[in-house]
Design a protein around this nucleic acid. Sequence first.
DNA 1: TTGTAAGCGTTATCAC
DNA 2: GTGATAACGCTTACAA
Lengths: 350, 350
Amino acid sequence: MVEQDRARGTGPGARERRPDRKPTMADIAQHVGVSRALVSIVFRGKEGASEETRRRIFEAAAELGYRPDSLARGLRSNRTRTLGVLFDLRRPFEVELVEHMYPAAEQLGYHLLLGAVTPTRGQEHVVDELLRYRCEGLIVVGPDLDGHRLDAIADEVRLVEVGRAVTRGPVDVVRNDDALGTRQAVEHLVALGHRRITHIDGGPNPGASDRRAGYQRAMTDHGLAGEIRVVPAGYTDEDGAAAGRRLLDGPLPTAVIAANDQAAIGLLDVMLRAGVRVPQDLSVVGYDDSRFAKLPGIDLTSVRQDIPGMADFAIKAVVERLDLPEREPKQIALPPQLVVRGTTAAPHGA
Amino acid sequence: MVEQDRARGTGPGARERRPDRKPTMADIAQHVGVSRALVSIVFRGKEGASEETRRRIFEAAAELGYRPDSLARGLRSNRTRTLGVLFDLRRPFEVELVEHMYPAAEQLGYHLLLGAVTPTRGQEHVVDELLRYRCEGLIVVGPDLDGHRLDAIADEVRLVEVGRAVTRGPVDVVRNDDALGTRQAVEHLVALGHRRITHIDGGPNPGASDRRAGYQRAMTDHGLAGEIRVVPAGYTDEDGAAAGRRLLDGPLPTAVIAANDQAAIGLLDVMLRAGVRVPQDLSVVGYDDSRFAKLPGIDLTSVRQDIPGMADFAIKAVVERLDLPEREPKQIALPPQLVVRGTTAAPHGA
DNA sequence: TTGTAAGCGTTATCAC
DNA sequence: GTGATAACGCTTACAA
């Protein structure tokens, strides 16, 4: 027997007890009395092993507590079947997106390797980490790197951007149709009878300019170009509160559309403290349909992004480009959906 | 030159363009004209290479776009310096905990491998995945597996449990001192002059029984055993709202301590709708100091767990046990801190 | 200071 | 159906 390689002593001292070493395929092979190659075949589910052998190998594996080694496997096969996902742990939206990527990846036979951006780990650092683990594709949620850097990365690995496009290279992009969301909000309010609808702007934040543009175009389309009013703000409570205070200085609109939920909540608070009743005196719409929007006592009408759809698209896009190397990259903007809750109603005079 | 191994053709056809293959140490070695071993030494920062050689190797690495291969490294050295972290992506508390683990791990020279539990991936599945990547230690946040299973895992890898202890094996455990948190809440309220303090119970949820016990003991210690009142509820908005409605059936206490923020918020909503003013008529304390508690318009007094402290302890514990194999496992309960906000004040009669 | 050679646990390519 | 053998990219004695 030439290939006895790492066979351990089976002399009188070696009883039935568990070995102190992690069992390998060689151990199973030895235990069953076949070659390692055959064990490998069985574990990969390839054909080329008899039913009887399969059974005995699985049996031995269970008995020895064997677990395949992803490192060795990836190294040798040059195929990790792993997708890296770069996202920001502090953003609930991105976390939820990641959650939805799992079933999609699993179904296509890929693993997810999470690369969390945190205050101590920038995107560049995380990309490097992911690439060292040989992930075959990279999904970057909320890319923050400059376009050139990302183009260089796209050169090394299949890339998908989620949220916004910062590159012109061969990269798939999936994002929310931000403009459509604010349009839906405008249309909902117009249908309720509102005309004086103000937008609380998101400033330089991701998606904010499209949300503003969607508002402006929808207002124009409904003959309300003269009613367009944009109050500069941002994505935080405090931004929304400040915008609310500005609004209180003049005659109130009958409805506001905030660039996101946080700002809407800050604004809501200022309004309620000032004695403005919502939705009787003022209708308020948020954006993101975050957990805050669903809270009793807030119950905010809000625009929900299609998170499962985006997750699904991102995974499928990268896997497709892995399987069909010459497939052209796609770009897509998924439609959001307005979730109507308690902060919107017909205006007073209607 | 015996060791020219995978040297690629450098003939007339091979211009300066980037190779289509990922560069390896062999490429750098060849480029510089040294052995692979030397390149390895340099990349690991070990001494035994001249300054000049170091410089030239780093230069070549940068030029070729080299990136060390974590798979090969881990496989060969049998040392991945990787810690697996099992946590639930849906629980903001756990996500925040993970975020704080990064700096601690990085400082000790370890990487984190995230194992996210989601509705489609149970704890067992995630543990298996993590172990296949050869992580050397495993941090299980909110263990849900039964004790025997976890004991078996502790047999394969250094284990730390965060949140609760489900095993008796050689395992470190770090958790919040849940009872101390409710005690702090009781003492805060008593200092404000409250006596009729009711606890909104967390039911069978993690930490809930300790929170209840802390409340009961603190009440007793302040001579308020006769005022102890526990309303069964849970950890959701709806649980809190239901408890609030029950409370409204009888004479109101002057203060309530909810088992968590969600329940507190559900209760708050019911109270405000019923015309009960907070904090004038009723003081409310939550638990977790979640993002909800900080929202303007909620501004909830709440008990904050020491998340950075727990993260730090978990990482240090597992690394210590990796470095000092015979170190005894530790168990610790970290003290939380009461964060006083707008929902607590002196009772009416005070 | 530097090079040689032997693996780590797996898969791929041949043979038989 | 099955087995031997050579890699994958790296680390680690040990030799020079």
